[in-house]
Amino acid sequence: MNTKTYKPLLIFIAFLFLTLFLLLPLLIIFIGAFSQGFGVFWHSITEPAARHAIFLTLLVVVVTVPLHTLFGLSAAWALTKYRFRGRQLLITLIEIPFAVSPVIAGLVFIILYGVNGFLGEWLLANNLQIIFAVPGIIFATMFVTLPFIARELIPLMEAQGSDAEEASLTLGAGGFRTFYHVTLPAIKWGLLYGVILCSARAIGEFGAVSVVSGRIRGATNTMPLHVEILYNEYQFAAAFSVALLMSLFAIFTIVIKQVVERKQQLG
């Protein structure tokens, strides 16, 4: 089909649409962050409340991502190296958090662990607090980000099959050694992207965390919640400064994806 005539027009429309919806929002974050000079930007990301929000966000990532990595590897191994009834159903079930509103993802933990929740009295009796505290934030983030690493690995390991592993076992290598020397090298790029995307989403989770956090400044505020508070207080430059830090990680995520796709095409 001779579409050459339409080429410039279609490319122009695509660029115009993406500029309006993606490029300008990104640009306004950069401009907003430095609108009152570098000093205000630097102060906004180093003052105590911001430092605490950054610390708490990193804590959530450090707990969530390694556990999700372990889950992703287990799920991909169990669901691609063996054939059993209900396998396809389980692959679909992993994606359930994508279909659940983040607000509902937060709500379920209030129902379970809140004061009036199913385990509320028991937690209170044992002096444990989950809701309106850091554990609640971690649970809510884990719910929302659960599928990210698994769904990168499952198609990769599915396509790879298990002949190489079987050969390695036949040659006398143990299960973990086979996994480390045969399976892992073949999936490492997909795993890397999964881990980074999962981290980006864990850093940026807002709805679910906002439900369970209690939004106590300096105690249960993650970076997105800190941005919300600053924005609602009309401290736009400060809000955009913290937003910029998170945007830089989002851009890093996208760059890694491009690199990984290129590596996978070559290898």
């Binding site: 974050i29 997105p224 919300e228 989002a250 996208i254």
Partner: peptide, 9 residues
Amino acid sequence: LPFALPTAV
């Protein structure tokens, strides 16, 4: 970008 950028941002 919409997959990676925090929704609040």
